[in-house]
Design a binder for these strands. Structure first.
Lengths: 202, 202
DNA sequence: TGTACATCAGTGAACGCGCGTTCACTGATGTAC
DNA sequence: TGTACATCAGTGAACGCGCGTTCACTGATGTAC
């Protein structure tokens, strides 16, 4: 039986990797069960032995994407001088670079909506919250007077703002910041915002 | 013949209004041709006498939304003291309020993607560019040393940042700024950013 | 070691639903004489 | 004013495609004796 279980786990991981590749290449809407089955060499219906449904599969891929994003942010955090302000700038730039390098996978994180009645599982929620620790630490150093709740809100605001610049910038549509200028604009905005917040603190 | 033309125009405008109502109530994905036809009291196929296809219809609704947004921003601009910094804050808050009050229609502006081969028509492009004049005027007053190109990029950055806060805030998901705090957070971020940009200018 | 049986992963055709768009046809409206 | 004809908006059934999911069946693998 263990041979069978092993095989099953192998197939399951193949499935998730194939889904990841497919989203990366063709976007979330390009993910099709029949193509997945062909890709991992099994029948249509076998997919449903490996995974509850397509929503679960998408969340599994999302989990992997968040993990890689986490690593990218950790790397950015570690490099260079320890000034908390510049750490935040580096994190923001790293977020931008990650999104650009993993465009479709990163978009899938935000495009995917569960049906109204289904609930996002705990393991997926935990993945998301993890990421805020990158922002929280330097922000706490910069704004020591603020309560944890206030800091949490400021962290979310800052993240949302940077996320917006990245999202519209990478769309390459009319309202977007032109791509070459994007990283510089993000750095400027983060620095300006932080300086403004600190000045306001006093 | 003019009686017929009149009737046709009436039906066409009914169609656009019905589409607007339908998107507002059920979101962009809730827009269905059969429901539209029933709503305006004609057959399925008649819709295609009034409009090229569904993409055009969505863009027409989008055009109306952008027009109302433009009015809302104009109103915000006019009210209160003339300090350019506070004008920008009021515009950002007005954008947030408009999005909250017109949630589905506002989302439709960003969700809608044309198929790769089709081109967004000129009248739709013009609608979008119009809006930036609201941001550009006060920004020019605040940052007089910058060239028009630089100002254009800064305007887009600022817009993207505020848009990101509104978009994630109104999603009400994990990463979002809590809704009651959103307006205050936006005002703070805009003030902090502007102060930071001006300080950097010197 | 060999045989009978049970289990369950794997199969792939078919279900079921949704939905934009087309098209042969109709009937009301307008035009020509 | 009346008749024959042309036009074209309006009709709604049907086309065509996509696609997640189910399900009766099969065959390989493992277990019991």
């Amino acid at each position: 039986m263990s041979k069978a279980l092993e095989r099953r786990e192998k197939l399951r991981s193949d499935l998730i990797l194939a889904a990841e590749r497919m989203i990366a290449e063709r976007g979330l809407s390009g993910l099709k069960t029949r193509d997945l089955a062909r890709e991992i060499g099994c029948a249509n219906g076998a997919v449903y032995n490996l995974v509850e449904d397509i929503d679960e599969l998408i969340l599994r891929v999302g989990s992997r994407t968040l993990l890689r994003l986490d690593e990218a942010l950790s790397t950015a955090e570690g490099a260079g001088e320890p000034s908390p302000r510049e750490t935040l700038v580096r994190i923001a730039i790293a977020y931008c670079d990650f999104a650009a390098d993993n465009l479709q996978l990163w978009r899938a994180l935000f495009e995917h909506r569960m049906e109204a009645d289904k609930v996002v599982p705990d393991w997926s929620v935990a993945d998301q919250l993890q990421l805020f620790r990158h922002i929280n630490k330097p922000l706490t150093a910069l704004l020591p007077k603020r309560s944890p709740e206030q800091l949490g809100i400021t962290a979310r605001s800052l993240f949302s703002a940077v996320h917006g610049m990245v999202a519209l910038g990478l769309e390459q549509k009319l309202v977007a910041v032109p791509l070459p200028a994007l990283r510089k604009e993000i750095a400027d905005l983060v620095r300006a915002t932080i300086d403004g917040l600190i000045a306001r603190e006093r």
